[in-house]
Simulated assay, not measured.
Amino acid sequence: MSHDPLLNIKGRGALSNERARFEEWARESDPEYQNLDENGALVETKIRTTVWLQEAKSIISRNTSPDIPFDYSINPFQGCEHGCIYCFARPTHAYIGLSPGLDFESKVFAKVNSADLLRKELSSKSYAPKVIVLGANTDPYQPAERELRITRGILEILEEFNNPVSITTKSGLVVRDSDILGRMAAKGLARVFVSVTSLRNEISRTLEPRASVPKRRLDAVKKLSDSGIPVGVLVAPVIPAITDEELEAIVAAAANAGATTAAYILLRLPLEVADLFKEWLSIHYPQRAKHVLSILSQMRGGNLYDSRFGKRMRGTGVFADLLRDRFHLACKKNFINLERKDLRLDLFSLPNTGSQQMSLF
């Protein structure tokens, strides 16, 4: 790992550019070239975000994982400026020769032809209508979306075809599209999940530095709910000995804001994410680091990560069972998850025809 303990980075989750598993060369910095002031103190380093406009070849991803409750997803962006240190999508940057570390959150690729590709794919005779998930990998409402409006363009196409959509985000920007989502929700075609990891700004500031602050996310839940849009909260990820103590408080805050559903996911540390997270722990929680990793390994059968379907989201063992029981009790107490309706598939139709697409079988 390219660890640089002298680097003082503002507004970033990762503290280094972790070497990607496909790279032949490691990166190391020379302490002699650190940016120090006249007193020898480290000067704060700022890393600017670069967004490349990319022409994608296809836009709908097909999922075959048995423990993920959807088949289709769209990711308008590759990489994510939110910089969540725990993001399981970080290793995907290794496939394009970039680091899952700082590169992932500062070098973002925007699929500017998403709407055109989506229209083409939905119009195909072979397309079978299913719920399309936005935000399965990277956040569809990260900062670049404010100007590029790629996600909004996707929603416009989905509304045109009456294709149901489910959104997961950490950004209050989702409220901007309440007009489209409200119309779709009235037909049973839309729902939104807002991810809330912690209610404390001091944790969120380093854990997910460029995502919306916790209050703004809960405000988004309320505004979406007030607009008639079904909204839920994901307590994700739950980090042992750092955020798990907030589980009940997050569920209660979500219910008070108007959320009707909730779910949780245990911290996942696949591939390069493990070293990046351990580095983050060593800087921000040095006295707690060993304890956090110990509990996590007990929930993963002695390892930091267990990739088995059905186990990777929840973990196993005493701590995992306790977390599950606490979550269910919190939901029961706050009248969450009492009823969840499936989004409608029967309204799908090709624009300007008024006819619904026939079933393939």
Score class of each variant (00 low, 15 high):
D275G: 13
D139P: 12
V174R: 05
E38R: 08
F309Y: 14
L118K: 02
S198F: 00
S123H: 13
A136Q: 04
G188R: 08
T49Q: 06
T50Y: 09
H93R: 06
V231M: 06
S171W: 04
Y305S: 15
G317E: 05
I242N: 06
D244P: 07
A249P: 07
E38K: 08
H3Q: 14
G182L: 13
A14E: 08
S126Q: 15
D177L: 03
L338R: 12
E44R: 12
E23D: 13
I265P: 07
K125D: 15
L7W: 00
E105H: 08
S359I: 06
E38M: 09
R216K: 12
I85S: 01
A56S: 11
R340A: 14
E38W: 05
G40I: 04
G310Q: 10
S359V: 09
N8G: 00
M313V: 09
L6Y: 01
L199H: 05
V213A: 09
E18T: 10
S58N: 08
G302T: 06
I295D: 07
D219L: 15
R27I: 07
S225Q: 05
S124T: 06
A274Y: 00
P164T: 12
P237D: 01
V238H: 00
L276A: 10
V273I: 12
E279L: 14
D67L: 06
S294P: 00
I74Q: 01
P230T: 04
K10V: 11
E156N: 06
D179W: 02
E272R: 04
A262K: 08
Q287Y: 00
I85P: 01
D325Y: 01
L6Q: 01
S297I: 09
A20R: 08
D306F: 03
M299P: 02
R344K: 14
A89L: 08
K57C: 07
Q142V: 10
T45V: 14
S65R: 14
N137D: 06
C84Q: 03
D346G: 10
H82Q: 09
A249D: 14
P91Q: 02
G101M: 06
Y95D: 12
R324M: 07
G11E: 07
L323S: 10
L281G: 05
I150M: 03
T316N: 10
Y141F: 12
F109D: 02
K333T: 11
D177H: 04
S73D: 07
